[in-house]
Design a protein around this nucleic acid. Structure first.
Length: 560
RNA sequence: GCGCCCGUAGCUCAACUGGAUAGAGCAUCAGACUUCGGAUCUGAGGGUUGGGGGUUCGAAUCCCUCCGGGCGCACCA
């Protein structure tokens, strides 16, 4: 639709120039859906944008362009409005054909369109989404949940658009925190055997550490009491915790294609190579026995340590991360999405700046930075901390409100807004809970078809037999709204803003509920032909909601 | 102190990336069931988009500044 309008406008401007009525260059033509539907289906602000170069009032320019518009059958009306907008109203036959396309394409229709994301691309683009990437030190928390759901939904969007998507989990199971984890498990293990072993300072206090220690005791008895090497404790913990993390992800419908371990990058010599390359570019210096990255030439607010001082000369987290991002670029991804919390933003800037300084094109790299999640129970904030045992795990949250609600709530907010997860609201099976509101609309639509079937009214196999001209303005508006969903999906994918989809679904559901509630709008009525036309529209609505929810990883129940 | 994010109706949030009269839900008040599912709907009130300045045809959106909140500012990740 937008392409059509753009080409119409381009043609009109072309003719106006040929006629000498316009002189300015043809600009890139801006197209938008007006907020107010009274302004038509599509609007353009070209006249406003070229007014200055043209040295004419925008409305006059708009009128000139309008006079040169060649109206195809798809368009029923062109008008100039407001400060100089050119508004287009699409004809009913156009909407009918869109509906027919939606109906015949079925599930394939309710997806983002690849050609809107990457116009002109003819090969299958490669996308990598790196998300979650939690080190295995404990169960996933509510905060991780937002990361996981955001990343997975971005992946779903691009997957649905036909891209070649890799979901990747980057982690480190070595290092300091892991040593602490091993020590914590060992302490608990010894305690299980009645030995007075204190948990280390800053050790992991969660109950899951005891569980791991108990499992170790059940498996190995007291064979490890005198073992001082932490490796076996660490390894047992990592194994158990990773299994737990994967299990939690599975409950949310999330899986990963690739797991990349920081240690593998180090062992492959890639981290050394990065250090050498940075040194060769004079971007490092030594101070206090450590190797530093120069902040100033990279436009960073401060210098940062790449390699720690001390006998083992361990790299900090950011050095392998630089190597990792270079590897990602080398793997040939057209789009790389990194999902992480606001606390990691400085690191990401450092990493990207360093990669760029080494001569790589970093434009494929995009970051989704989400703000923190707070949990509210009975109007009170729930405090969360991984180290202490006070946090609420993602598993507990899923237990309490269900996977559908968890996913929907995490997506129902712009990622750079803080997210307050209201447990009371999440559990309510009432219209103020957006998940139920949308799902209910779907269940209601499903019930129409059940009722229709019971009354012997079903859509014919040959859908072209249904006369869409019988539909009224209200029904057409509903269908328009539904048919606009793929465009919203495309925009959401392109902007990396999945929240647009749940908001759109909520509006669509609301519009349907309002329609449905009017007695005059009974879909199954005495007039068989009209009933079929309305069922046709209802089928599109149902598919739209189901398709939208599917993309969000939320179920679309037939009955509730 | 420095960097990033946020500030929109009493509350929780949108606003298609600079467009037309800033919109939803909740809460409040007043209404609608002979319903294909009332887990729904109709109506009303509620705003100087934190304050001030700037940019331009046009600003919640971009720039400057101040105020308020969050997150970072580790040889932890």
């Amino acid at each position: 639709m937008k392409e059509l309008i753009v080409s119409i406008l381009r043609g009109a401007i072309e003719r106006a120039r040929a006629a000498g009525q316009l002189t300015a260059e043809i600009p890139s033509i801006g197209i938008e859906a007006p907020r107010d539907s009274a302004h038509g289906d599509v609007a353009s602000n070209v006249a406003l944008t070229i007014a200055k170069a043209e040295r004419k009032p925008p409305r006059a320019i708009a009128e000139i362009i309008k006079s040169h518009v060649a109206m195809p059958a798809e368009v029923s009306e062109v008008s100039v409005a407001g400060p100089g907008f050119i508004n287009f109203k699409m004809s009913s036959p156009y909407w009918h054909s869109e509906m027919r396309r939606a109906a015949s394409d079925g599930r394939a229709f309710w997806k983002p369109r690849a050609w809107e994301l990457h116009p002109g691309a003819n090969e299958r683009k490669k996308v990598q989404v790196e998300f979650l990437s939690a080190n295995p030190t404990g169960p996933l928390t509510v905060g991780h949940g937002r990361n996981a759901v955001l990343g997975d939904t971005i992946a779903r969007l691009y997957e649905a658009a036909g891209f070649d998507v890799t979901r990747e989990y980057y982690f480190n199971d070595g290092g300091r925190q892991m040593k602490l984890l091993g020590e914590s498990v060992r302490a608990r293990y010894l305690q299980e055997h009645g030995i007075d072993a204190p948990l280390p300072e800053d050790g992991y206090q969660g109950e899951y550490i005891r569980d791991i220690a108990r499992a170790l005791k059940a498996e190995r008895g007291d064979a490890l009491v005198s073992v001082t090497d932490l490796e076996i404790f660490r390894a047992a913990a990592v194994k158990a915790i990773f299994a737990d993390i994967k299990q939690t992800c599975t409950r949310l419908g999330i899986r990963f294609d690739v797991y990349t371990n920081e240690l593998d990058l180090i062992n492959a010599g890639l981290v050394e190579a990065v250090l050498k390359a940075l040194r060769d570019c004079h971007l490092t210096f030594e101070k206090d026995g450590a190797i530093w990255l120069r902040g100033e030439p990279l436009g960073l607010p401060k210098d940062a340590v790449l390699v720690r001082s001390g006998p083992d000369r361990q790299p900090t987290y950011r050095t392998p991360d630089i190597a990792y991002h270079i590897e990602k670029l080398k793997r040939g991804f057209d789009l790389i999405v990194d999902v992480f919390g606001a606390d990691h933003i400085a690191e990401h800037q450092e990493v990207v700046a360093a990669v760029k300084a080494l001569g790589y094109d970093t434009t494929p790299i995009h970051a989704i930075i989400y703000q923190f999640v707070t949990l509210t129970r009975a109007g009170e904030k729930v405090k969360m901390s991984t180290r202490k045992a006070t946090y609420v795990t993602l598993d507990e949250l899923i237990d309490e409100v269900g996977a559908d609600v968890v996913r929907f709530f995490f997506l129902f907010r712009k990622s750079d807004s803080q997210l307050d997860f209201d447990l009371e609201l999440a559990k309510k099976q009432a219209p103020e809970n957006p998940v139920f509101y949308v799902q209910y609309a779907h269940a209601r639509l499903a019930s129409i078809f059940r009722e229709g079937a019971a009354k012997g009214l079903t859509l014919p196999a040959d859908l072209s037999a249904v006369d869409l001209k019988l539909l009224g303005a209200e029904e057409l508006d509903l269908a328009k709204r539904a048919v606009g969903l793929p465009e919203v999906m495309s925009a959401a994918a392109e902007a990396l803003e999945p929240h647009r989809i749940p908001f759109y679904l909520l509006e669509l559901a609301g519009e349907f509920h309002r329609y449905y509630n009017k007695p005059a709008n009974r879909i199954i009525g005495p007039d068989r032909e009209l009933s079929l036309a309305r069922m046709y529209m209802a089928g599109i609505l149902k598919d739209a909601i189901a398709g939208g929810l599917e993309l969000l990883g939320v179920s679309a129940p037939e009955r509730m």
